[in-house]
Amino acid sequence: MSTAIETHNLTVSYHRKPVLWDIDFELPEGQLIGIIGPNGSGKTTLLKSIMGLIPPAGGYVKIFDQPLDEVRSRISYVPQRESVDWDFPVSVRDVVLMGRYRPGRLLRRLSAEDHAIAMESLRKTGMEEFAGRQISQLSGGQQQRVFIARALAQQADLYLMDEPFAGVDAASEQAILQLLADMKSEGKTVVMVHHDLQTVRQYFNWIVLLNTRLIACGPVESVLTEDNLRKAYGGQLTILSNVAHLAQQRDFPMREQAKKQKP
């Protein structure tokens, strides 16, 4: 099995407050991978720093064994649904077509192929009939499916999704689950922040268990042990969070030298 994502000593701060400490893992290709952990454990931050949206305070990320910028066109990111204004004056089709803009082709007109790919992505998420709909008229689950369709339109190999099941109706949940199964069978890798422990075994076959530091990473059965869950959910490490607080107050860097480690 080759590696989709490798993080090495990844340390990330948010406004000087360290939220991830020395995260070190390798994620295999072709799996449905869940990032699990309590609130404030740094799940979203991990996803964003893999995607290069938050610069690491230390350590590095490699994707398909290369730096992010080399393989960006093979990765697709699905942000949290609440991160945008759904009253923005665009239609469902417009949003999905945004997945067809890549650097270097920004000024080019969209081709018939782009439109076909966008419609196919909408079909895969069961949102075809909503193509002309203004996005503010969608339900939460439908909004989420539009976001996923936009990601599909990018035709990537690795998908990073931030809580796509949050606040989603049963029909959308089924549609997304079916889609994930199809993606897995096509050999795609999906890494997903997820907060519902009940469904973890059912949805994923590989787990990253997180609570500001890496608790465990591996196949579901080996990670979801009582011991690991207690470590992740059994309260914060007091000293660790005190140090994080102190670093923020004193405006202290997380590495002695600010220079970034190169992969």
Binding site: K48, M51, G52, L53, D69, R72, S73, I75, S76, Y77, P79, S83, V84, D85, F88, V90, D94, V95, M98, G99, Y101, R102, P103, L106, L107, L110, R150, Q154
Partner: peptide
């Protein structure tokens, strides 16, 4: 007119635009 699509993509979802590698 030239950058209309790029501006609208970025205005709707800045992080997505960054993740797609748009400048």
């Amino acid at each position: 007119a030239l950058f209309f699509r790029a501006f609208s993509t970025m205005s709707f979802d800045r992080e997505f635009a960054m993740s797609a590698g748009l400048p």
